[in-house]
Write a protein that binds this DNA or RNA. Structure first.
Lengths: 139, 139
DNA sequence: CAGACCTGTAATGATAATGATTACAGGTTG
DNA sequence: CAACCTGTAATCATTATCATTACAGGTCTG
């Protein structure tokens, strides 16, 4: 199990856009702050764009955050870049065994509640808070 | 991101041990109920053994649950088979950028709280409940 | 308006994790 | 003893992720 770096990268990108608002931020410049390849940055920005969190214009530098930082939660970011369910079940339990026949339902219930708990925690933090945490620390 | 099937398989194995207590349950028989290869079953049982959840005897069939089902939570099972952190961060943020220099701390905080929320949910369910859910449904 | 500069995206390759399978050493049991 | 199991190593196929190259098409500035 493991959630890849895409989510971290997405939060980093949005933090840069929020922190250095108005300045030129090319994908290469952002890549330098994040420590990854510029193409990865452009791909993640594409996911954020498709989720409605940023707007971009092909050929023009940078990206713009689509709505106030207070109205973007980390769950929004998470959903933008991670589409699969957190848990997965073994796909072929034996329907002729009473346990095998019922375990999927049981697991789905548990998985749903567990992922919901994690997502509720992500939903409680807005990008606004994340960006402000940098400013405070930097002061 | 995705938690693999090991956790599902582990819950399935413990459910079988709890449901068909006292009966012969070879790794091959369990594999038939789960729908995976017997070697996978033996490997997962090995992880459960190292976590102190089951006992086994080499050469002898099956495995025994090491303590009452009421005292085994799904979090115990989860920790037995999933050792890595749920989230991972991009490993090389630029320390010369104010965002890059501080984002890891911010992300670690968020990740810790999110994983804790998920684990709290897992901790709230005992294997006892899982096994009883089968009996009720089967009745 | 022309050239330099960007973005968006496809394609390829390296690396890592997972599950399937084969093989076999060593313990168990009737 | 002989059949049967477990524990574990080794291989292989598959899949996901990230790095990188390449390039089409839009932007912007002198």
């Amino acid at each position: 199990m493991r959630i890849g770096n895409r989510f971290s990268i997405a939060v980093h990108i949005l933090s840069l856009l929020g922190t250095f608002e108005g300045e030129d931020q090319t994908s290469e410049w952002m890549a330098g702050s994040i420590g990854v390849n510029p193409v990865i940055v452009r791909n993640v920005i594409g996911m954020l764009r498709r989720a409605g969190l940023v707007t971009t214009q092909q050929g023009a530098k940078g990206a713009h955050i689509a709505r106030p930082l207070k109205k973007i939660t980390l769950l929004d970011v998470f959903r933008a870049v991670e589409t699969e369910d957190l848990f997965s079940s073994h796909p072929r339990p034996n329907p002729n065994c009473p346990v095998g026949a019922q375990i999927q339902t049981t697991l789905e219930d548990i998985y749903g509640r567990s992922q919901a708990a994690m997502e509720a925690e992500l939903k409680a933090t807005t990008l606004d808070k994340v960006v402000k945490s940098f400013k405070v620390k930097a002061a």
